[in-house]
Nucleic acid binder design. Structure first.
Lengths: 254, 254
DNA sequence: ATCGCTATTTGTCTGACTAATTATAGACGA
DNA sequence: TCGTCTATAATTAGTCAGACAAATAGCGAT
């Protein structure tokens, strides 16, 4: 079989062997990761459809569907004769769950992590306040269950981290604000990476579970201001820990 | 030409005559509007690709590309044999610019408008505070220019409303937080409709321009807390006005 | 500097085949 | 007889190939 890889001039990607799901999806994923990780810069023109689809060993239609996905998420833009080019970062749907996942596929940059935490710091305290006003009993139960799971499994296990995310998700859901709920994927991503960094660098310095319970108690007691403050503390501490872990990573020893 | 419209049983859509741009885009738009406006409910199964593409008088591949766009935005999900069905609302990318535009194509519901304002109330004051810390001179100039435009054209003209949106956009941009900037389309949509409602119902009751200048002055003076408070007031008033306009719309006379 | 042409690239269409998965009907066992 | 499990069939999205159409960026002539 002819590989046709030629020189390394044009970035080339062999499609993942152990791909999952449909082809157009895996192509979109491959290209999406290449774009958000900077292998293609904004303004760069992708190979034309025929060359690109041949290089990836897929049909042109499958490749085109992949491009439509990326275009829908604001990553690329196509025009006849001009080709398909990577859009400026300001058009990227950074809060889209898939785009976010692609970002975290390669290790995300420090700045990006910082800005996600800033977003958390803005959104979550207010969300907790709204949740304290609007949560129903079923949601409250889910929060309690999540925290219990979190306690049992600890954040060292994937089950524990999933419970952590469930808790924050449920708070967002309890705001009864649909656009706000949409942010759960972004916030979940920030939560996940906070924990991963902390876990990676040291025995977790501070047990975050009591702080979680304080948020829960305030929401359960329907005290918005108290919930806002508790969440502020919780997110603030997470932010500090992540900052410290990042500083250690880039500046210090292994 | 055979119309083949048959009975009115299955919802059918003639493709927009005065369509713009590419076919897959206009099909996605048509279906997207049908979905977000409730003509298709979450869980509903769309016609299979062959029937649907025939009914719309487009090729199957164009139709499929449209479906890929909708799937990328979380509106639908396709599986072999099961067909393509409308996803639950919780998966919709409500903050995506196009999805938002589709929402506002039909008149948006009161609840939706309210939740967008809630989002503004959460995000914009903090954004103004960050902007006060991080804005550069060029951004400050753009804010000033926008407000001057707004004064000259007034909110009765499209140019004035565009300037309003530019101001809020630039504040978001000045936060130097990419995920936050992504929200500008959602906030812009809320801003636009606030103004439209106010304009529709009465001579605008309150001149919002002085409140805008207060935000600007605080950002120019690099006073985060002051900027936060000024923005809080500005958004709060907009929220009140919209609420009043909505109440009048649904409850009162023309 | 402007206009018009042309070559390139995406866009669209057709029709066939593939693969996945649900649903069904039948066999088997309780 | 009833329920459950299993092979099978039917349906649907997924993929592929190749052709033609439409748009337009870039170039050359004016």
């Amino acid at each position: 079989m002819v590989k046709g890889k030629g020189s390394g001039a044009d970035g080339e990607f062999e499609r993942e062997e152990g791909f999952s799901g449909r082809i157009h999806g895996s192509i979109a994923r491959t290209l999406g990761i290449a774009i958000v990780s900077g292998q293609y810069a904004p303004g760069d023109v992708l190979n034309n459809e025929i060359d690109a689809s041949e290089k990836l060993h897929v049909s042109r239609s499958a490749y085109r569907e992949a491009i439509r996905i990326l275009a829908a998420k604001g990553l690329v833009e196509s025009r006849p004769k001009a080709g398909t080019r990577v859009s400026p970062r300001s058009r990227w749907s950074l809060l889209d769950p898939e785009v976010l996942a692609w970002f975290f596929e390669a290790e995300p940059s420090e700045e990006f992590l910082t800005s996600l935490h800033e977003l958390r710091m803005i959104v979550e305290p207010s969300a907790a306040a709204l949740a304290a006003e609007r949560r129903n009993d079923e949601q409250l139960e889910r929060m309690r269950a999540a925290l219990i799971q979190m306690q049992q499994h600890t954040l060292a296990t994937e089950a524990g981290r999933a419970a952590d995310r469930d808790f924050h998700d449920t708070v967002l859901e309890a705001t009864d604000n649909e656009p706000l709920r949409t942010l759960s994927s972004s916030i979940g991503a920030a939560v996940r990476w906070t924990t991963i960094f902390k876990q990676r660098d040291r025995e977790l310095a501070r047990d975050p579970i009591p702080d979680h319970w304080k948020v829960f108690d305030a929401i359960a007691a329907s005290r918005p201001d108290q919930a806002r403050q508790a969440m502020e503390r919780l997110v603030g501490l997470a932010q500090d820990d992540t900052r410290a872990a990042i500083a250690r990573r880039s500046g210090g020893a292994v």
